[in-house]
Design a protein around this nucleic acid. Structure first.
Lengths: 145, 145
DNA sequence: TTGACATAGGTGTATATGCTCCTATATTAA
DNA sequence: TTAATATAGGAGCATATACACCTATGTCAA
């Protein structure tokens, strides 16, 4: 393989998305740090706040995350009392993830940091371009390959 | 916080990028699996192939990755003999990461899988849109906030 | 020369990610 | 009813990620 052939890997869509994810995650995490939440944890709490109680599978699908990953990501949140994990009454296989009052409060406390990060990014990157980027990324997730 | 207020988190740029990264990583990883490489490892080898020997700091910057992350990501590759880690002759603080012959060979073996993944994605998502997406993501990485 | 500062990298710790293989429970067809 | 199958979730394993704090080495000015 020549260096020229290696250069086509610079076009890798996967690498481009991962690099941007690392970059943005570090940025957003800075603004969430004072709340004691990471971006992933913030996302989980926010989804539960918006959707109400969900099963692990349902929430994982909502977050485009492997269910085993979500299962593990729950543990620090449960340990801190931000969510509760209860067995479903109608299906004993299913566990219901529910935001606690402390979880709602923590999400509220973290919101200003998120707004700050989001605003600064959109200030720098542009509101419309941010919106266009999110739309493209949504189509990536939805794309059938 | 009302559910309506929680809904603005749906606009999170960070979450959108992370979700797409998870989705694409799983997709590309499937096609690389037979080579025994993950996408991150493939990226590392490809960069070293294109740039020649690099220090940990230089390669980490190139990959938009924390240097401590890269330091740990090196270990499986070194263990398998795909890269060599040698001290620099001129600066004893610096370590030079170098692709071995086995590393070149492994990269060559993984290339068809990457091409397949890349082609299928661009077939589904569109060549021009893929290119536009990569450009946007590049600007995300470059954006000063 | 030497002391202050900058740079390269490692370690400890914690979370994030997902595959493979596993059990428990539910559903459905024979 | 029962056997096959599908679904929900957990455990083991390995890699990925990055912050805080650390040591070693290099640089540069007083």
């Amino acid at each position: 393989m020549t260096p020229e052939a290696a250069a086509i890997f610079e076009q890798c869509n996967c690498l481009a998305v991962r690099q941007a994810a690392r970059h943005l995650t570090q940025f957003y995490d800075q603004f969430l740090a004072s709340s004691g939440l990471r971006t992933t944890q913030f996302s989980i709490l926010a989804k539960l706040r918006g959707y109400g109680p969900l099963s692990i599978n349902a929430l994982a699908k909502e977050l485009v995350m492997d269910r085993t990953t979500l299962g593990r990501n729950m543990l620090p949140l449960e340990r801190e009392g931000l969510i509760e994990i209860a067995s479903s009454a109608t299906d004993r296989r299913t566990k219901e993830l529910r935001l606690t009052e402390a979880g709602v409060e923590r999400l509220r406390a973290a919101a200003p940091g998120w707004i700050d990060a989001q605003s600064r990014f959109e200030q720098a990157f542009g509101r419309k371009r941010s919106s266009a980027l999110r739309a493209l990324l949504g189509e990536v997730v939805a794309s059938e390959m």
